[in-house]
Every structure is written in C-alpha cells, then in structure tokens.
Amino acid sequence: MDPKERLDEIEAYLQRQMTAEAEKVFEQKMADDPVLKKEVKLHALTDKAIDLAMEDEIRQMVEEIRQEEPVLQAETGHQPSEPIIVPLWKQRWFQCAVAALVIGIILITGIPYIEGLITPQTIPPPSRPQAINLIDLPAKNAVLGDVPTEDAMEKAKEAFFDHKDYKEAERLFKLAQNDPVTNQTEVTYLLAYTYFMQERFLEAKAIFDRFINEPDKISQLPLIYQSLDKIKWDSMLALLGTNEQEQLRPALEAFIKSDPDPHYGKKAAKLLEELSSE
C-alpha cells in the first residue's frame, strides 16, 4: 500500500471517520500486521503529544489571564466578579415560582376577561331614572275629582303627592286597602305609581296591564277610563324601566299605529326613534 494512503487510513481510524464496517476491517488488519499496529500506536501517541502540547499552551495562556485579571479589570472597567451572586431571576427555583405565579394570575383573571371578549356585548341599559323622568304622575284628584276621601287615603295621598315619600305612601295605601269605604280602584291605581317611583317596574306594569286588559273595572271611573292611553303609555315606560327592549319596540309601534292621544303618541314616537338610534 502507498505510504500516503496508509497514513490517511490510520488518521481516519484514529479520528473515528471510518464507517463501522471499515473500522472492523482495519482492526482485523492491525491484528494480522504487528507493524501496522505499531504504526497506529505511534501515530496515536504523536497526536496525543501534540494535543497535550496545544492544551498546555492554552492552559498557560488562561493562567496568565487569570493572574492578570486585576489589571484587565482596571483596563476594561469590569468589576471583580468573584464570587458572583447569581441573579435571582436566573435561579431555577425562582423561574419556576414566577411561571407558576403567572399561570395562576392568568387563570384567575384571564378567564372572566376571555369570557367578556366572547360574550356578545349588549346595548347598555337605559338608566332607570330615564323611565321615571318620562312618566307623568297623575294629579291628586285625577281619579275621583274633588271628592273628599277617608283619613287613611288622605294621609297616603299626602305622603305620595306632597312629601314624595313613596315607601310611606305604599304602606298607607295598603292600609287604605282594608278600609271598606275607600275606593279600591283609586288605591290600586295610585299604588301602581308608588311601585313605579320605587323602581319596582314589574309590579307597576302588572297593575297597568290589569287596567288595560279589563277596562270594565275602571269604566265607572271616567277620569281614569278616559285616560286609558296614559295607562298604556305608563305600562310601556315600565317596560323601559325593566329594559325589556324586545317587548318595548313592538309595543311602541302598535301603540303609535292605534292612533292614541297625540300627547302620548308623540312621546311614544320620540322614544322609538331614540331606541332605534342606539
């Protein structure tokens, strides 16, 4: 074999660049040829000697640098760094703790936030005072005219109309419900507005709807009967108070179409327009 080829083969073997198969063949060759085995051994030793010399050179250089460190620190502006305190954020336990904390915060705060993102946003409800502001309270004598009333009823009306103390008025109206001589339709009618002013719109609406659906009951009270459109309008305002817009819109449209009292018809049209613009 050409000496150069032989040398290349030895180098390839020592540097582990041979395939497993070629390596096996070469090892068999070495076992059969003591001269080749000696060659390989010598070559490996030579490599080792050179490698060691190179390592010594580097080691010496690093040692020199280590001894020159104070000078280097002065030149480069580095601070003496022995011992280094490992920054907290580079320590494994701290990284794990922060990760756990972040995940915890995300789980606690993120879920409602994500839910908020995917939940369709509803139109903000109109403020309740809007319904209260729109309502026209009946006059003190709206039901029976200037007919004198009983004591309990008188006190209740005083609380309602003069003091605007609706809670007290409710209590007194309920007392008047037990008075056999008091007109109960008037009591119920005024009780509806007492509920309305206390923002108990559903209870108020229930009374208004009773009047609307059973007009016979109020037929003997002409003042209320004539103002049935007002009761319808007030019932719709109660819907506005409860923010039942899906029911309110068709109710308003039907009310406008029914050719009501122009006073309430205009108000209904205006409210419908406002709701549409929202």
Binding site: I65, E68, L72, Q73, T76, H78, S81, I84, V86
Partner: peptide, 13 residues
C-alpha cells in the same frame, strides 16, 4: 479573545 471570554459576565454567571 480568551481574556474577553474570561471577563465576560454571561460566561461566568
């Protein structure tokens, strides 16, 4: 170059 590595805070840390 060795001195640079030796002085580098990242390598040490």
């Amino acid at each position: 170059a060795i001195a640079y590595i030796y002085q580098d805070e990242d390598y040490r840390t």
